[in-house]
């Protein structure tokens, strides 16, 4: 492998992002006999260490209320219509079921309950996704 090609791959190598073992082997084979590319790799690693040493900015304040207020101010009256599609869907289901004589009056409440429940489940799923927000599993890698 020529220096020109290795230099393009050094970032990938330093980041542990090489495509496969063969690529790693070819880079390491070149590095074993090329001081110039070895020096460049050290510089990349030194740059990474320097960037990693940058202090994280800590904030103890989590402005939940401000965000909720901003959201409400922006969404405002529009949010009232959020339930319209759900209500329309409920009405459609009730009408359809009624016309097929599949539901009694009592079961109308269970449809509404079902809609509430399904929304809660969606929220739960949404939060569950948040639990694993920083866990990535790419089976292809």
């Amino acid at each position: 492998m020529k220096c020109r090609n290795v230099l393009r791959l050094l970032n990938r190598y330093a980041d542990g992002e090489c495509a496969d073992r063969v690529e790693v082997f070819r880079i390491e084979e070149h590095l074993a006999g090329c001081a110039e590319c070895g020096k460049r790799l050290e510089e990349i690693r030194a740059l990474r260490r320097t960037l990693a040493s940058v202090e994280r900015i800590r904030t103890t304040r989590v402005p939940v209320d401000e965000i909720m207020d901003r959201h409400s101010a922006k969404a405002g009256p529009v949010r009232r219509f959020d339930l319209l599609p759900m209500a329309a869907a409920a009405a459609a289901v009730i009408l359809l079921a009624g016309s097929l004589r599949m539901l009694s009056v009592e079961s109308d409440a269970s449809i509404v309950q079902y809609l509430y429940r399904s929304m809660s489940e969606a929220e739960v799923a949404y939060l569950a996704a948040g639990e694993t927000a920083y866990t990535f599993d790419y089976s292809g890698k």
Partner: peptide, 13 residues
């Protein structure tokens, strides 16, 4: 609203 608040609490930092 509870979900939204939790989302902010968890990810704001």
């Amino acid at each position: 609203e509870k979900s939204m608040r939790e989302l902010v609490e968890r990810h704001y930092g």
